[in-house]
Structures are given as structure tokens and as C-alpha cells.
Amino acid sequence: MPVEQAGAQVDTPAGGELATEYMGLRLPSPLVASAGPLSQSLDSMKELEESGVGAIVMFSLFEEQVRREEAGSPEAPPASQSDEPAATDAYLRLLEAGAGELSVPLIASLNGFRGGEWTATARRMQDAGASAIEVNIYAVPGDLSMSGAEVEDRHLEILQSVKDVVSVPVAVKLSPYFSSLGQMALRLDEAGADALVLFNRFLQPDIDIRRKEVVAGAGLSGQDEGLLSRTWLAALHGKVRASLAAASGVAGPDDVVKALLAGADVVMTTSALVRHGASYAGELVNGLRHYLIRNQLTLGRLRGMLAVPADTRVDEYERSGYLAVLEQARRRHGL
């Protein structure tokens, strides 16, 4: 049975209106600046707002930073003994400043994977003015004995521990690497996730064969990465109550439209804004608005137009599409 989504939009006459909702938050547009370097200063966040983003996700505060500070590690000296404030304090100060001066929702980001008291920092983020918390669960289990079920349960534990200490909405940013991503999404939805952000990008180092060493891979995302995100947006649209956010492969206005057609409530991007500057958000927003006007569509009608039909089994739908593509390839290439 389809369910009413948290980000649902009421239809209004087609005129390029972009106001929408995400996790119950009112946004002037569905374009969201995701966590990245452009949220590391108040000036750049103001530029993002002026360019038309509907919300901003701040850069992540990491579990390791919180743990070191709580333990009083020499790697993280108290602010009184250093020229730089502790990472958590600096983060909260910027968050408080942004929340006080920006008119769009400011979403704080916590990044981690282990259980523990570090998640209680979410309450301090809420108190500093965060409109919501995005929990970025970067889970690459290094313990080879850790089962898939344990990995999934850890996601639920982290979500619950954050939900226990805040009253603002909580989004979960997760990876696509589950044996049954659909079931994981349903479990997170049932556990109270207010949004699912698809997907997290894992560090994928390369190898330099001349120097015979590992090369860190922290490049910007590519446009093709949006294919997997849109596949799961289309599958989950109408199946979960949580809002859905596209967060991969958004390079231009067409990618924004595609994600919304697949069923996203909001479309997040960092790489495009880093490549072209914060003002590029205006081009993405205007591209979406012009598309709506040209096609005489409202945002509400556009959203989910190409999602998996509510009365169709997702696995059968995807399987039939797979077979159709193979048949097209056979005809075209004589396979």
C-alpha cells in the first residue's frame, strides 16, 4: 500500500513555483546544498542562500573528533591550550551564527559508525539552532567477522540514539551497499527516520603502479553516480513515510529534474557547487523552474512521475526493464 510522504507538495497552478517541504520543514526550493566545504563559513552559506538553495546541510562533525575531545586526548587539546577552538565548539559556534542569520533551514551533520555517547552531540546541535540533524553513517566494516545483520542493526541503533536526544527531524544518509537495501530503508523508516538520503559516497582509493602505493581518492562525484540513486528513489517513492533526498550525480539542471521525476522530495549537491561556485545553485534552480513552465507542470505533479507504480512489485518492474534493455541491445548490436 502506498503511504503519504513527508515531503508531499500540494498542486498549484503551473508557474514555476518551487516551494516544498522536506522532513516537515518548509523550503523555498527543492535544491539543497549538501555537506561540504561551502558550508564551512557563514559568508559562503549566505551566498548559497542568495543563489536559491532551499536548505543547507553543514559539513560533518565526525565521531572521532567528538570522542577525542571527550577523552581529553592530546590530539585534541582544550581550547584554552590551543589557538584553535575544539572542533565541536567551533562547529556549534558556526551553526549558531548561521541559524541566526540565514532564513533557510540549516541542517547539522554528524558522521560516524560506532555506538556510544558521541551521538549525544546531536542535542547540542539542536540547542545551537539546527533545524534538523543529518546522520551520515559511513560504514565500512573493517572487522571481517561482522555480519550484515550487525551492520544493519548498528544503523538502527545510531538512529535511535539520536532520536532519543532531539525533537527536530533526523535524516539518515546511507550507502547503497546492503544485501537488501529496500528492507534497510523500510526498517529505518519504521524506526522513525524523517528522511533517507541516497547515497553516501565511500572513499575509493586508487593504486599508483609506478610508485607502488595507494593514492587517496577524494574526488568530486560524477554524473553517472545519479543512476543508482534514481533507481532507488523510484523504487522507494510512495513506499516510505520518510522524505527522500537524492544526493549523488547532480551536475546540472537536467539531473535535478531527473531526480524529482524519480521521486525525490529534495535534490542535494556539493560537487556541482564546488566546481562552479555557490552561485551555480541559481542556474540549477532556474533550470528546474523553466522546465516546469515549459512542460506546464507543478512541482507536485513532476515529483514521482516516473517512479515505480504503486501497484507494481518493484522486483518485477526492475526485472522487466532489465529484459527490455537486453532485447534492445540484441536488436541494435545483433547479439
Rank of each mutant, 00 (worst) to 15 (best):
A310V: 10
L31N: 07
S44N: 09
Q9C: 12
V162T: 12
G287K: 04
E117Q: 05
A55P: 02
D43C: 04
R319M: 10
T270C: 13
R313S: 11
K239R: 15
V256Q: 04
A90Y: 04
G222C: 05
T312G: 00
V240F: 05
L299Q: 13
V314C: 00
L335I: 10
L102F: 07
E225R: 06
A108R: 01
E50Y: 09
A246I: 07
Y177D: 15
L196Y: 09
A171M: 02
R211C: 07
L220G: 14
T312F: 06
A262Q: 07
L228K: 08
V274C: 08
Y138C: 13
S145A: 14
A35Q: 07
G16K: 12
G142L: 15
V250D: 01
V214T: 15
G129L: 01
D254Q: 15
V104T: 00
L236N: 06
S80C: 04
V166I: 05
R93T: 13
G15A: 15
N200D: 01
L227F: 09
K212L: 10
D143T: 09
V240L: 11
G287P: 04
E327C: 03
L326M: 11
Y317F: 11
A307F: 03
A246L: 11
N111S: 11
G98W: 00
W232L: 04
R201D: 09
T119N: 01
R289G: 05
R331W: 02
L38H: 03
N200H: 05
V215K: 08
L306A: 15
D265E: 06
R124K: 12
Y91G: 04
A246P: 06
P74T: 11
V240Y: 08
G115A: 13
L144I: 05
D311Y: 03
G112S: 03
L273S: 01
R123N: 08
S320N: 10
K163T: 03
G100I: 01
N295H: 15
G334D: 12
R114N: 14
G192C: 11
R67I: 15
A149Y: 04
E150P: 07
A128T: 06
A87V: 10
I107P: 00
G252I: 06
N295Y: 14
F199P: 00
A262P: 07
A90T: 05
I133Q: 08
R313Q: 10
S147I: 07
L323I: 09
L144V: 11
A108H: 02
L110N: 04
M146W: 13
S39P: 13
R303L: 11
Q81K: 11
R210Y: 12
S161V: 00
D127W: 02
H155W: 14
L144E: 14
V162D: 00
V285Y: 01
S145Q: 14
S103L: 04
S82T: 12
G282V: 03
L156C: 13
S103P: 02
R230Q: 06
A130E: 01
I207H: 12
W118T: 00
A246C: 15
A35C: 09
S39T: 13
V53A: 01
D89H: 09
P205D: 10
N111T: 09
S279Y: 06
D311A: 09
L227I: 12
